[in-house]
């Protein structure tokens, strides 16, 4: 239980930080795509005895690079290509899984099983999560600049392509570490919701990161506790709490929430400029 809490909070923090970039770049669907596309990688890695994280990472990266490549070399739009590629890869994973004898549980991969995490897995997740967290935080300004104004990044001779791949790699690895917690169907919530909560509360990027991380960590901890006491799906509880936080932010955030906007409009009517 204590292990689960630590792992959950680490996963939440890692995903939350990345979610800020995904939300700002309009890459939300990319998070969904990569998380589904890791399945064949996991199955293959299990089959040949590699760490599951390695297989997942390669498959996730393949998905995003293949999407970019097909889009550049065809007239089909990016979201469409992505839809085809990630469902195709997910289906491949399902077929491979059904043909393989294993003691892997498909529902653990799809839905997560954080309360049943082993000590060594927990340690592995904590270390990988911490590395991702540090790398993202250190490179946040560069990653923000390539998302905000590519031209400026190029003019300053920053390695913008490399930074794109860095973000993709961080994304794939974050998905790998969160599979255990929420499973690959719900990972996308961890990768989108905290960032949008942050964006609703502030218009400074560093604050957005902190709010996203804070809200995600708190929701995850309470989600795990609730699921433990209700004996309900852990991944489901975590994501549900996050969704509620999002709804509350949508309503009550001071500047960009509905209530705040309504108040501002009334203030504007009372004292017209």
């Amino acid at each position: 239980m204590r292990d689960a809490l630590w792992v959950g909070m680490m996963v939440a923090a890692t995903c939350a930080m990345l979610s800020c970039f995904l939300v700002l770049r309009g890459w939300s669907l990319m998070g969904d795509a990569v998380s589904h596309a890791v399945l064949p990688g996991i199955v293959v890695a299990y089959g040949v005895g590699l760490p599951l994280a390695v297989g997942a990472f390669v498959a996730g990266l393949f998905c995003s690079i293949a999407t970019g490549f097909i889009q550049r070399n065809s007239r089909v739009k990016k979201d469409t290509v992505m839809g085809v590629v990630f469902t195709g890869m997910f289906a491949l994973g399902l077929v491979m899984f059904s043909r393989m004898e294993s003691d892997l549980h498909l529902d653990h991969i799809l839905l997560g099983n954080i309360l049943g995490i082993s000590r060594s897995q927990a340690l592995q997740t904590l270390i990988l999560g911490a590395v991702l967290l540090v790398v993202t935080w250190v490179k946040r300004r560069d990653l923000l600049l390539v998302s905000f104004d590519r031209g400026q990044a190029k003019v300053l001779a920053l390695p913008e392509r490399l930074l794109d791949y860095l973000l993709l790699s961080l994304l794939s690895l974050a998905i790998v570490v969160s599979l255990q917690a929420v499973g690959l169907i719900l990972v996308v919530a961890m990768l989108v919701t905290p960032g949008s909560v942050g964006l609703l509360w502030t218009d400074r990027f560093d604050r957005m990161l902190l709010i996203a991380v804070g809200s995600a960590v708190a929701s995850t901890a309470s989600g795990i506790l609730i699921s433990y006491h209700l004996d309900a799906s852990t991944g489901g509880c975590i994501v549900l709490v996050q969704a509620l936080v999002f709804c509350a932010s949508l309503a009550f955030a001071p500047k960009y929430g509905w209530l705040g906007r309504h108040m501002n409009r009334r203030k504007g009517k009372e004292n017209p400029v």
């Binding site: 998302s147 001779a157 218009d203 604050r207």
Partner: peptide
């Protein structure tokens, strides 16, 4: 993208990154 959560000073600072 003018909705980005960056301030006037943040944008000017981006000139210094190099």
């Amino acid at each position: 993208d003018w909705d980005f959560p960056v301030s006037v000073a943040d944008v000017a600072m981006m000139g210094r990154y190099g």
